[in-house]
Computed example of a mutant assay.
Amino acid sequence: MIFVEMLVYVVRDGKVLLIRKKRGLGAGFYNGIGGKVEEGEDVVTAAIRECEEEVGIRPRDLRWSGLLEFWNYEDGKVESIHFVHIFLASEFEGEPRETDEALPVWFSISEVPYDEMWEDDRLWLPRVLNGGAVYGRFEFVKWKLVKSEVYELRPLK
């Protein structure tokens, strides 16, 4: 199966808002706010909707910061492919609140809990949190990382 998804990282005053995911793939891990793009949505609309659903905020200044590919293999076959657009935001309406899906937690950028996140996050997220944009391709076997490529993107001139 192929999925188009997005993650939003809200960064303000040297801190990043992460969620502790309560259910689904990655439950128990910290991650950005996000999920799947629904039929008829573009990635920006989906990112705003997911922020509203998962933590009750509406980002106002989404900035595209990269694209990640996640390939998961099981029994030697591709089980799923996830194309994930990454966004940063610094401004939002509302106050982050806990929902059935997620517990929002602010972390200092220097204290992001990478040991409680997906294995690949430490390879690309620091670049994004420092203002960069990335392309990454990650291969997993039963959701254990086996191969990774990460490239910093440069603006077009």
Results as ranks from 00 to 15, higher is better:
E5V: 06
E5W: 03
L7G: 02
V8I: 00
Y9E: 11
V10E: 10
V10M: 13
V10D: 04
V10Q: 03
R12K: 15
R12N: 03
D13R: 07
G14L: 04
K15P: 00
V16L: 08
L17P: 04
L18R: 09
K21I: 06
R23D: 12
R23H: 09
G24S: 02
G24I: 04
L25Q: 07
L25F: 13
G26H: 09
G28A: 01
G28L: 01
G28Q: 08
N31W: 10
G32M: 08
G32Q: 09
I33A: 10
G34W: 03
G35W: 07
K36G: 10
K36L: 02
V37M: 15
E38W: 10
E38Y: 09
E39H: 07
E39W: 03
G40H: 11
G40V: 05
E41Q: 12
D42C: 02
V43H: 13
V43P: 04
V44W: 06
T45E: 14
A46N: 11
A46F: 00
I48M: 05
I48Y: 07
R49S: 02
C51W: 03
E53R: 15
E54R: 10
I57K: 13
P59Y: 05
R60M: 14
L62C: 03
R63M: 05
W64L: 12
W64T: 06
S65T: 03
G66L: 09
G66V: 05
L67V: 02
L67G: 09
L68R: 01
E69G: 05
F70R: 06
N72W: 05
N72Q: 05
N72P: 02
N72S: 04
N72T: 02
N72D: 15
K77W: 11
K77V: 13
E79M: 12
S80V: 15
H82L: 13
F83T: 05
V84R: 13
H85T: 00
F87D: 03
F87V: 00
L88V: 11
F92L: 11
F92I: 09
E93Q: 13
G94R: 07
G94T: 02
E95S: 13
R97P: 08
T99Y: 11
T99S: 14
T99N: 11
A102P: 04
A102K: 13
L103M: 05
L103Y: 11
P104T: 09
P104D: 05
V105H: 02
F107C: 01
F107Q: 03
F107D: 08
S108Y: 00
I109W: 03
I109A: 06
S110M: 02
S110Q: 07
V112M: 00
P113L: 02
W118I: 04
E119C: 01
D120H: 13
R122K: 15
L125S: 10
P126R: 01
R127V: 14
V128W: 15
L129G: 13
G131M: 08
A133V: 07
A133H: 12
V134R: 13
Y135T: 15
G136A: 07
G136P: 08
G136V: 04
R137F: 14
R137W: 12
R137P: 05
F138D: 14
F138W: 00
F140W: 08
F140D: 12
K142Y: 13
